[in-house]
Simulated assay, not measured.
Amino acid sequence: MFEKIKVLVVDDSAFMRKMISDMINSELDMEVVDTAKDGEIAIDKILKLNPDVVTLDVEMPKKNGLEVLKAVKGRTSAQVIMLSSLTSEGSAITLEALQIGAFDFIQKPSGSISLDINKVKDDLVEKIRYAKSSNKKNKGKIQSATITQSKLKPSNRIDAVVIGASTGGPKVLYEILTVLPGNLEVPIFVVQHMPAGFTKAFAERIDKNSNLRTLEAADNLIIEKNKIYIAPGGYHMIIEGNKVRLDLSPTMHGVRPAVDKLFFSAAEKYRSNLLAVILTGMGRDGADGVREIKRYGGTIIAQDEYTSTVYGMPKSAYETGCVDIVLPDNKVADEITKIVRGNY
């Protein structure tokens, strides 16, 4: 008999606790071991029960989700998935929670009490499984700092950088984008799988702390050097000529924005003068785009397994045979700077 994933459900609404618990208990490989109706009770139960995964409401009385996360950080091995309603306060708290160690988040479909919470069931149970499996990663041995699949000595100048990320991406992207120099002299385009509304808060958060102007992309924006363009949730971001374009064409890999959409358009525009980066995330979005970028002679970096929250997207990219360099997250910004400036 296999061991079920033990989940603690935290929400101030009795209705939401019941609905979320029913969704989780309907899966054969997971079970709700308890619930909590506010932040103070949640802290006590997390530390007492040490569940595998906690679904944690963002906005609650007594202590909100962020305060709970801070209180249990380093005191439990439980992975935390934030459940957030789309409010300016909720999105800001959610992004801070991801920054300090939450595994991922789910957007409630229609506010703090979502009668249609079943809409996100598939997404939630998938993330619970990934969260549990991330606890099993071998933390005993750090991989070597750099693994190359090809001898990398880019002879082409770099005219643009494209980056794709999903689960675990907001924290890594923040750490990369806020340390890049302000005179990189190229535009940077970023797709982070994230719902509408959250991408705006994410862009603003980076912009406050980055040397480069960072903004949520809008349709028909003229592309400028030393700017970071974040794809808005709900839209694909592509490059046409000297402009950023947004479109509502169907999802790819179940997501919009999709990394592949950006990568294909950037490959056609910048050809061999393009640097692509694939970071932590579920699924295989970006792998086809990596092939296309390599077909044009571009350069590709992938995050390593050890530092990836979920080694899905980087693994799929690596398996194409097109990745030039594999790096831990804390080496990526320096490598981008070195390659863009031709310091080899």
Rank of each mutant, 00 (worst) to 15 (best):
E67Q: 15
E67F: 15
E67L: 09
L69I: 07
L69T: 03
L69E: 01
K70N: 12
K70S: 12
A71V: 09
A71S: 15
G74F: 09
A78F: 06
Q79A: 11
V80I: 15
V80W: 12
M82Y: 03
M82P: 12
S84L: 05
T87Q: 03
I93C: 00
E96W: 02
A97F: 10
A97Y: 09
Q99R: 15
A102Q: 06
F103D: 03
D104C: 11
F105M: 06
F105T: 03
K108Q: 04
K108N: 07
P109Y: 04
P109D: 00
P109V: 01
P109K: 00
S110C: 10
L115M: 00
D116E: 00
D116H: 04
I117T: 00
I117G: 00
N118Q: 02
N118H: 11
K119Q: 11
D122Q: 11
D123N: 07
L124R: 02
E126T: 14
E126R: 14
K127P: 06
K127T: 06
R129Q: 12
A131Y: 08
K132V: 03
N135K: 13
K137T: 14
N138F: 13
N138L: 13
N138D: 13
Q143F: 11
A145R: 14
T146M: 13
T146Y: 04
T148A: 08
T148H: 04
L152H: 07
K153H: 10
K153F: 11
P154S: 10
S155A: 13
N156V: 03
I158D: 02
D159F: 04
D159S: 14
A160Y: 10
V161Q: 01
I163C: 12
A165F: 01
S166P: 07
S166D: 08
S166K: 02
P170K: 10
K171E: 15
V172I: 15
L173N: 01
Y174C: 10
E175K: 14
I176A: 03
L177M: 05
T178D: 01
T178C: 06
V179T: 15
P181S: 13
G182K: 04
G182W: 07
L184Q: 00
E185C: 07
E185Q: 13
V186H: 09
Q192F: 01
Q192N: 10
Q192Y: 01
Q192D: 07
H193Q: 08
P195A: 13
A196S: 11
F198N: 06
T199Q: 04
A201F: 07
F202I: 09
F202V: 07
F202Q: 02
E204V: 08
R205A: 08
R205C: 05
I206H: 08
D207H: 13
D207I: 08
